[in-house]
Write a protein that binds this DNA or RNA. Structure first.
Lengths: 198, 198
DNA sequence: TTTTTAGCGGAACGATCGTTCTGAAAAGCT
DNA sequence: AGCTTTTCAGAACGATCGTTCCGCTAAAAA
């Protein structure tokens, strides 16, 4: 048989992910990807269908790794407000850690870039939004158990609100690296949610 | 003198604006713009420096026309919560009016597309964010006069929060045309602001 | 060791990108 | 009308895009 298949397919996606994350889909050319990943064009086309599919693979990897790392705590059983707070703390910490570059969230960044015709990618973005909403909803439902002030409908509304608000935060972070604003936003949102459940 | 200069320079920007709005900066080629605007390449290059400058001109036009039309009510002297509510009502109405296409806000869409190096365009986006924040701040300060519950710092934080939250809403609207969610988000934000001032 | 064969680097492809250039047409001026 | 000046449509340009293809390499099979 042939030469052993490179074991850096995983690295390939990771490298490409960073390139897309920083530069966006359009601005990142295949040449850039070749340079950045160290894998030749044919290698990329062999393992992925093309630029589109590689981009989607990056979105999925980002979803499974980066998002899960930060948001996973909210998705655990029994996660409450303190889990939400930890999520925001993670955001602030890691965003401050990545030196210089404010790149926001790959998925949030993609919102404005994806063509309305690209169903496959749009589905990924939608699913991400639904995921965040579901996480917030679970937290709210749990925290609401004590006093039961909120109806299910109100919980839905608050979860959607939190999701959109957080997506907005990511969009903001893409171009501004002000941890103060991020913390402020998170605090304001948390305080608002707390006051609503009682 | 020469052939009469087309009187549709204004239309040119308007047409290009729509193209950029729907498709984004990268996905909209000069060929598309020529087709869409009816103006030839040389005409575009004569009146604007190139694609970048045309795009910025579109952003500015969008800012002066579309944004002002919707947000201007908030920026008037003495604007209070009812002005904010009218802003949201306008958003919902017009977003429902534009048939089929959910295109969100041109400026919000650009957030994820602009290269971190493109200082000129980034400055426009920053200025827009500052504009929204200033509007919210003025409203909050006015509404806070009655009871004076909030400190200036708290008002700043709430204004930033509202701005980011609304930018998130626009990002969401780009891909989903659910007036219900929009209304819900607006209601939740309004209610939250009201409860904070007293 | 020889043969086979999968894998990958890099050249090459057509298409399309943003931009420039040019020739002809139209409008002002005398 | 004749001449000048300005404008614009469309051809043409080099660069670069995403993609394909070829040929060598090196590991597996014999």
């Amino acid at each position: 048989m042939p030469r052993a298949k490179s074991e850096n397919r995983s690295d390939l996606v990771d490298s490409a992910l960073v390139a897309f994350w920083k530069g966006g889909y359009c601005a990142t050319s295949m040449g850039d990807l070749v340079k950045q990943t160290g894998v030749s064009r044919s290698g990329i086309y062999a393992d992925f269908g093309g630029k589109d599919d590689l981009f989607r693979a990056c979105l999925e990897r980002y979803r499974d790794e980066t998002v899960t790392q930060a948001f996973g705590v909210v998705e655990q059983d029994g996660a409450g407000f303190e889990a939400l707070e930890q999520y925001f703390k993670t955001i602030i910490t890691t965003s401050a850690a990545v030196e210089g570059a404010d790149i926001g969230c790959l998925i949030a960044n993609s919102l404005g870039q994806v063509s309305p015709d690209d169903r496959k990618t749009l589905a990924l973005l939608d699913a991400h939004a639904a995921r965040l909403t579901a996480g917030f909803k679970a937290v709210l439902r749990l925290e609401n158990q004590a006093k039961g002030k909120l109806t299910e409908t109100e919980i839905d509304a608050l979860a959607s609100f939190a999701m959109i608000s957080v997506q907005g935060l990511w969009g903001y972070m893409r171009n501004k690296a002000e941890p103060e604003i991020i913390r402020q936003h998170a605090d304001t949102l948390m305080e608002m949610l707390r006051s609503r459940v009682g």
